[in-house]
Design a binder for these strands. Structure first.
Length: 531
DNA sequence: GTCATGACTTAGTAACCTCTTG
DNA sequence: CAAGAGGTTACTAAGTCATGAC
């Protein structure tokens, strides 16, 4: 029941099913800060009113007068009830879900049974883009069978639409990999159901991606000297292209396609950088020719970096910025299209994003070589691995929100370390005493006691080291997401070979899902693999 | 060339699950 | 055995890039 505030009282309103469903979406999100944002509220309210009947529309004219208290409470109690279910009740639900996965979660491709990545149609709800998205709060509508295109082979068992419905289309296109598609109403983009990352199809593509990046390894020297040469070109286009490439290569920036204004959050990549996104410093903190970057990239993640660049790049940037407004394009003669066309002429398959893959993987390989020692303990080796991984994540600007309980769990770990320190001091004292006792008497029992104490000290020491290493790792990782680079940029063969060479079990580096995804690499990689 | 569209990869977050610990 | 931490999975938004129409 929705409450509606009037002059004095708040009167309850029973909503029609359609209006209630959408109102409930809003009520469920009330704990989120974004439901207070004006853009979110007005988008939501506009779409909500579309779902109301005439009577409701007349009655409910102002979102600020709506009291979602009861609907919100209802939702909260549902969540609470779910949390408080018994083990058995939870198991029943889990079994039911598993049955759904078994029935709908797989398909047959070239006679292989393959897991589907996302086999469920996206449910309706309120759209929440990332960053300052102009469409936040809009209603994402329920998808009907009539919206859905099925793509399967001619001779396969075509899935039945739900009773009383029909599919939008059934097609047999083997040039694409998707099984189902539909058009989503908020952005008008096509959504797909595709295979899981552990499938043969995705694995082969992944392998190809890294092979292209490895080809770049042998050509990158030549390509670099060419774009450094191009910095001097008489052609403005060529110079802009050269500077953009310099950024893409050195800083691992994304290509930066044009975006339609007002359709999504204002974010940029290399080619779409604007004058306002960089500041030039002739000197800064003792270094000359420093470029200060400050812009929002993919997912509205901030990229902030101060980078010393070559004199020539610096001079070009000054030139590109001449007579321009802050909102003007830095590279006004350049587009991702022309940039990629140029790159593919230098090497087949070469595009801007290959540089990210290449630089990420080569950095991991170099860092691993530099940081890890055969004589280290496994914990120390893993710290080195994480540090190498982290160097890549920083290069690619992969960030995360610091975990909510970060400070608390850091403090907990620290106090555990302190306790262990005391234990070790105690153990050492006992060892000393045992040594003394053993010296003064020939009782063989004392020798076994001594041995025991010795082992206790060693155990303490090892545990302490492990915890200290863990603390360092955790602190350094506070705002950095390692998983994105691990999953998308680092040639898995580097990690597999490293594990083999340093005698580290692979499951310390890759969990089950990751081992499945990288099965191709696990099989083919020898100790001597070089990226 | 440019523009729209489609197909696919890359991305961060929230929900969920599991293991540890008091 | 409950609670909490930490790891894992699900989810879906937001990029990249090729293609084809104009």
């Amino acid at each position: 029941m929705l409450g509606l505030r009037e002059c004095r009282e708040c009167k309850p309103v029973k909503l029609s099913p359609r209006a209630e469903e959408v109102g409930l979406f809003f009520a469920q999100m009330l704990d989120h800060e974004y439901t207070t944002k004006e853009v979110f509220r007005s988008n939501f309210f506009r779409d909500w009113r579309k779902e109301m009947n005439l009577e409701e529309r007349t009655l409910i004219a102002d979102l600020n007068k709506c009291d979602f208290g009861e609907l919100h409470a209802m939702h909260k109690s549902k969540v609470e009830a779910r949390k408080n279910m018994t083990k058995e009740e939870k198991q029943v639900i889990k079994d039911a879900n598993q049955k759904i996965v078994d029935e709908f979660g797989f398909c047959l491709l070239d006679h292989h049974k393959e897991r589907i990545g996302n086999f469920k149609i996206e449910p309706p709800g309120l759209f929440r883009g990332r960053g300052e998205h102009p469409k936040m709060g809009m209603l994402k509508k329920r998808i009907q069978p009539e919206d859905v295109i099925i793509n399967c082979s001619k001779d396969s068992r075509i899935p039945e639409p739900p009773a009383g419905h029909r599919w939008k289309e059934v097609r047999h296109d083997n040039t694409v990999t998707w099984l189902v598609s539909w058009t989503e109403n908020v952005q008008g983009s096509v959504k797909y159901i595709m295979l899981n990352a552990n499938s043969k199809l995705k694995g082969e593509k992944d392998w190809e991606k890294y092979e292209v990046a490895r080809q770049l390894k042998s050509r990158v020297g030549q390509i670099r000297s060419q774009y450094l040469e191009d910095l001097k070109s008489k052609q403005m286009v060529t110079r802009q292209r050269a500077v953009a490439l310099y950024f893409i290569d050195k800083l691992a920036l994304r290509a930066g396609n044009e975006k339609e204004e007002g359709e999504s959050a204002d974010t940029v990549g290399c080619c779409s950088l604007r004058v306002e996104h960089i500041t030039l410093h002739d000197t800064l903190a003792g270094e000359s020719c420093v470029v200060e970057f400050d812009f929002l990239g993919k997912d509205s993640i901030r990229y902030y970096n101060k980078v010393p660049v070559s004199k020539r790049v610096f001079k070009n940037l000054k030139l590109f910025m001449e007579n321009k407004q802050p909102g003007d394009d830095l590279f006004d003669r350049l587009s991702t299209g022309t940039l990629n066309k140029h790159l593919s002429s230098l090497m087949p398959g070469l595009t801007a994003k290959v540089f990210r893959t290449y630089n990420a993987s080569i950095t991991l390989q170099q860092q691993l070589k530099e940081l890890s020692n055969m004589s280290d303990s496994t914990a120390e080796k893993l710290l080195s691995y994480n540090r190498a991984n982290r160097a890549v994540a920083i290069l690619c600007n992969h960030q995360r929100a610091p975990p909510k309980s970060f400070d608390q769990s850091m403090a907990n770990l620290q106090s555990k370390i302190d306790t262990r320190r005391e234990q070790m001091a105690q153990a050492k004292r006992e060892l000393k005493q045992a040594k003394k006792d053993a010296k003064e008497s020939s009782d063989p029992k004392l020798m076994t006691v001594l041995e025991k104490k010795r082992k206790a000290v060693a155990r303490c020491k090892e545990q302490l080291l492990r915890m200290e290493v863990q603390a360092t790792d955790k602190e350094e990782n506070k705002q950095i997401a390692l998983s994105t680079s691990k999953l998308n940029y680092l040639d898995p063969r580097i990690s597999v070979a490293w594990c083999k060479n340093l005698d580290v079990p692979l499951d310390k580096v890759y969990n089950k899902t990751q081992r499945d995804k990288f099965a191709w690499a696990v099989h083919m990689t020898e100790k001597d693999f070089e990226f």
